[in-house]
């Protein structure tokens, strides 16, 4: 049973790649399997193969499947100490540049984009920065660009923001109505939302800071390595890379290209080449 299902999963991932160029073949398989089984149950298919049949012939099924495969619910200022470290240790360096490029890779529904935008506003760096928010899921990108979150999440966002050393009040940045909080468009007028895949796409600009948190834990090791190589090649000399609190460069072949800049917070700095 389980062996057949494993085969079906392999075939479905191959089908998604061949038909739609979405490449999940090197995603960590155990998580993908959980997500596909959830998708199968929610979408009402008896088998993964039946789901594959449908998604191959009916493109409207793709976004629904992508939702299960990619969307990550995060929080604003998730891991407040990470943002505190950016504020206190990284931004003093970034301040020395006349203009800045920041890449939020795997921006999902935008929580981290708004967090960084607020941080940069508070530190007076927003106006000289361009933020690139990229994801492979078009619906997630649209949600990120909309910047609307249900109001029940705001308490946690506010708490995180304060713990991160926030200098303003989060409520300055959103308007609440009808159970939703809509974040101000002044937080995204310097954000470029764009489709980009760490699996198949290449370098697109020279960055001063790349934040890619809890994205690579979904990759297998070879794919993690590809992504880290891409980050290395995308960073300016002495640029910064921030990862999720349980991610590290330790197992990567590119580890030598970085120094551990804020060790506990998984903030790395690109060595001089």
């Amino acid at each position: 049973m389980s062996e057949i299902e494993d085969l079906e999963i392999q075939l479905l991932l191959e089908a998604l790649f061949q038909r739609y160029h979405y490449d999940f073949r090197h995603y960590a398989r155990a998580s993908i399997k959980r997500r596909l089984i959830q998708a199968r149950l929610h979408l009402g298919f008896a088998t993964i193969s039946a789901m594959q049949d449908r998604v191959l012939h009916d493109a409207s099924m793709l976004p629904r499947l992508l939702d299960f495969l990619t969307v990550q619910v995060s929080e604003m200022f998730r891991d407040p100490t990470y943002f505190k470290a950016l504020r206190e240790k990284v931004l003093p360096h970034l301040r020395t540049y006349p203009s800045l490029k920041i890449w939020i890779a795997g921006s999902s529904t935008g929580e981290e984009v708004y967090s960084l935008a607020i941080l940069f506003k508070e530190e007076g760096l927003y106006d000289r920065t361009i933020f690139y928010a990229t994801d492979i899921n078009p619906e997630a990108l649209a949600a990120a660009e909309a910047g609307v979150y249900t109001i029940d999440r705001i308490r946690k966002f506010t708490e995180n923001h304060q713990k991160s050393g926030g200098k303003s009040s989060l409520s300055d940045y959103y308007t609440a109505a009808y159970g939703r909080a809509a974040f101000d468009k002044s937080l995204r007028d310097r954000v470029v939302f764009s489709d980009h895949s760490l699996v198949t796409d290449a370098v697109f600009a020279e960055m001063h800071l790349i934040s890619c948190r809890n994205v690579m834990i979904y990759f297998d090791r070879p794919l993690q390595d590809r992504a880290i190589g891409l980050f290395r090649d995308s960073l300016t000399r002495k640029g910064f890379l921030g990862l999720g609190s349980k991610e590290s460069l330790r197992f990567s072949s590119h580890a030598g290209a970085f120094t551990d800049f804020v060790p506990g917070e998984k903030i790395y700095q690109r060595r001089e080449p």
Partner: peptide
């Protein structure tokens, strides 16, 4: 398992973490 992360055994026998819901 770290707090706030799922811990899984991957198909190659490594442990993997996830922030799935």
């Amino acid at each position: 398992a770290p707090s706030d992360y799922h811990m899984l055994v991957e198909t190659d026998g490594c442990v993997a973490l996830s922030t799935d819901e």
